[in-house]
Design a protein around this nucleic acid. Sequence first.
DNA 1: CCAGTGACTGACCAATTAGTCAATAAGACG
DNA 2: CGTCTTATTGACTAATTGGTCAGTCACTGG
Lengths: 215, 215
Amino acid sequence: MSRRARKQLREDPEVRRQQILDAAIQVIGQRGYHGFTIQELAARCGLTNGGLLYYFGSKERLLISILEERDRRESVIVHATAELTQEESQQGVLSLARVRKLFRIIVEREVGQPELLRLFAVLQAEALDPAHPAHDFFLRREAMVIDEFSRMVAPHVEHPRVVARQILALLDGLAQQWLRVDGAFDLVSVWDDTVAALFPARTQPGGQERESTAS
Amino acid sequence: MSRRARKQLREDPEVRRQQILDAAIQVIGQRGYHGFTIQELAARCGLTNGGLLYYFGSKERLLISILEERDRRESVIVHATAELTQEESQQGVLSLARVRKLFRIIVEREVGQPELLRLFAVLQAEALDPAHPAHDFFLRREAMVIDEFSRMVAPHVEHPRVVARQILALLDGLAQQWLRVDGAFDLVSVWDDTVAALFPARTQPGGQERESTAS
DNA sequence: CCAGTGACTGACCAATTAGTCAATAAGACG
DNA sequence: CGTCTTATTGACTAATTGGTCAGTCACTGG
């Protein structure tokens, strides 16, 4: 048995690492980077601070690991999106319907992983401080996202970068509202309304077919 | 001389209190509630932690005082807005142009007080945690704002509460972007675009926008 | 000029913090 | 079986935390 013995009193290191990361997402998502303590996180994983520090050398490196981890998981979606952008469209131009669908996928993903959503909402604000260890990360990230959104909507709107900003703002803003009331309204349906308003069906001027009445 | 002696080695208590609050807005706006320390804040005000704690009994009460202080300052605007809502309109219904103008005033206010904006952006996210001392404050606040926005746009849109949510999300989201890049884009102008998209001129696309472009 | 009020210090405290490290036990492997 | 690697503890540290408190100095009102 090289790995994965059937009965082990000791956790598999990979599994443990993941377990720590998952717990960290929850804890930091609640208390923030400044607010959480290593001991608290360690206890939640059933080990001591020393044990936790064995995996991630310091609090800051733990944070970075989380961000990388998230990037890894997210890249799946991003790349899928990118492929959709390239493949399912002629010369890289997405149809309006396709754009809508992509944004819907994004929101559905968010709703499906509320802990991760919360983590990023909290960290993103905390990292407004240039001295925050995640500041640069979110700076780059935002620039990337705006670039990507901008490219997506470029064929369909007048000022793509402004629209990209607005979309991102709406995504983040609505997400934070949703988190604050602990999911008390239907984020996806509000988002559908939003998309309908942002990219109105051109054929019928008065046409706003979807309905949603939240909160 | 009952108050305000011309030469005083000791600060006037009221002035000092304000000074502390101002400094606290900056410090907490940077590091967050969990991240800042009383000693740091005290030092910035030129006194010791004990001296600062003399004014506000505890870290938490200091935070609450700040929120109240902000509410006090903000209420001026809010009430002005409310009066506009009631006075300058027939039976409390605001014209579209008036609604636009009000939102513009809000954004201009934000831009004019970036420290306060930052403080609220940071705290709002930090306070997603139900255990955060400011959690309830922001819960109530958001509900109030949505109510008010909802009332404002009610005559002009189909689903006022959803639109109110969207507006608030845009305000907060754009503000955070603006803070992140340290004011590197023109928030007011982006907002103008946003308003134009949200409340399109019904008669002709590209119609009236004369009154709102000047500041 | 003097007593009293109140702003503020400096020294202190107990608790908590991130991080270190030697010792150890659990499993892998020959 | 015995040795090697490695995950983990437990005891520790040095620094920092929010908060307390007695004393003190600056003013104020009389």
